[in-house]
């Protein structure tokens, strides 16, 4: 009987593992190998160059600019998104008036759906839409500023090195918030009402309930959100490619690692060098994920 069980297990596991090996593990392995070569992407042969590609990275101004911009996005995107999403989710679940306590603001069901809309749009469409928002002169944002008398703030948002990266980052946050509102709302709704009610009876205000009870109980979701958003912030390629001047400009203000990598591979034909960037990005992502998991680790609250 035991023997049969293992045969069944192996039989069930082999096909997915094989697919995973062929389509996920082997490309990774190949990228690691290519990172050590000078492959041009077109010939069948590639010469080994050792760690030269990795050494070159640290004197490549574009890569360094990309690293800096991704670093900034890594700080801003998860923090802003999680803060906003927690705020909205709390409004949807805790924010109701005295009579709706614990059920969220009026019409919260509708808001929940509306917040999710950006998630349904592809990144490419988002990029194009926000390009119109940021259009200099008669764009939506400048028009809005003009309408409320803030003409002094009007500018070419994507063409000014000071505002280009914030403009792109804002789109990332805008598009991500909705999903995490839904995620956090679901988590908050699973917080037992008796705990909340007990706290309320003890005289806790809504903010205290949120800080002392809700947040600790949804911390697992926040942790997951942080990792996902961190990975999102390390990418940003599609938005930058579509929206930014250059792309990657002005003056490399919106250069991201994905774009530097793409250009190295497909414009310069330096696939080996590009693979080295990919491998570096892989390790950065891995390290950050591990750090984030560790730094946000808290004691688990058992509710049963």
């Amino acid at each position: 009987m035991r023997h049969g069980k293992y045969r069944f297990l192996i039989g069930a596991l082999a096909p997915p593992l094989l697919l995973y090996g062929v389509f996920v593990v082997s490309p990774y392995a190949q990228a690691f190998y290519l990172a050590l070569t000078d492959w041009d992407g077109l010939s069948a042969e590639a010469g080994l160059v050792g760690l030269q590609n990795f050494a070159d990275l640290w004197s490549d101004p574009l890569f360094l600019a990309a690293l800096r911009n991704n670093g900034l996005m890594l700080v801003v995107v998860p923090t802003a998104t999680i803060a906003l999403a927690l705020f909205f989710a709390a409004c949807l679940t805790l924010g109701g008036g005295m009579r709706r306590r614990g059920r969220g603001v009026h019409g919260s069901g509708l808001y929940r759906i509306v917040y999710f809309f950006p998630q349904l749009l592809s990144v490419a469409i988002l990029g194009v839409l926000f390009q119109f928002v940021y259009t200099p002169g008669n764009g939506l944002l400048n028009g809005l500023l003009g309408a409320v008398g803030l003409d002094g703030l009007q500018r070419s948002w994507l063409a000014d090195p000071a505002t280009a990266l914030p403009a792109v980052t804002a789109v990332m946050v805008w598009s991500a918030v909705g999903f995490y509102v839904v995620l956090f709302t679901a988590a908050m709704e699973s917080v037992p009402t008796d705990v909340v009610e007990a706290a309320t009876l003890d005289g806790a205000g809504r903010f205290t309930v949120f800080r002392r009870i809700t947040l600790p109980l949804v911390w697992d979701s926040v942790q997951v959100a942080y990792v996902y958003l961190g990975i999102l912030a390390l990418d940003g390629f599609a938005l930058v490619q579509i929206m930014s001047v250059g792309p990657g400009g002005p003056d490399n203000a919106t250069e991201v690692i994905g774009l530097t990598l793409y250009r190295a591979a497909f414009t310069y034909g330096e696939f080996g060098y590009a693979s080295a960037m990919g491998v570096t990005l892989f390790f950065i992502t891995l390290t950050l994920t591990a750090l984030a998991m560790r730094a946000t680790k808290r004691e688990r609250v058992e509710l049963a």
């Binding site: 001047v245 002005p250 250009r263």
Partner: peptide, 19 residues
């Protein structure tokens, strides 16, 4: 030299923006 062209474009963008 596409590597050079990218830098030419960036610099030209800065020239035209008055920076």
């Amino acid at each position: 030299y596409p590597e050079l062209a990218v830098e030419v474009d960036t610099a030209t963008g800065e020239l035209l923006a008055g920076r």
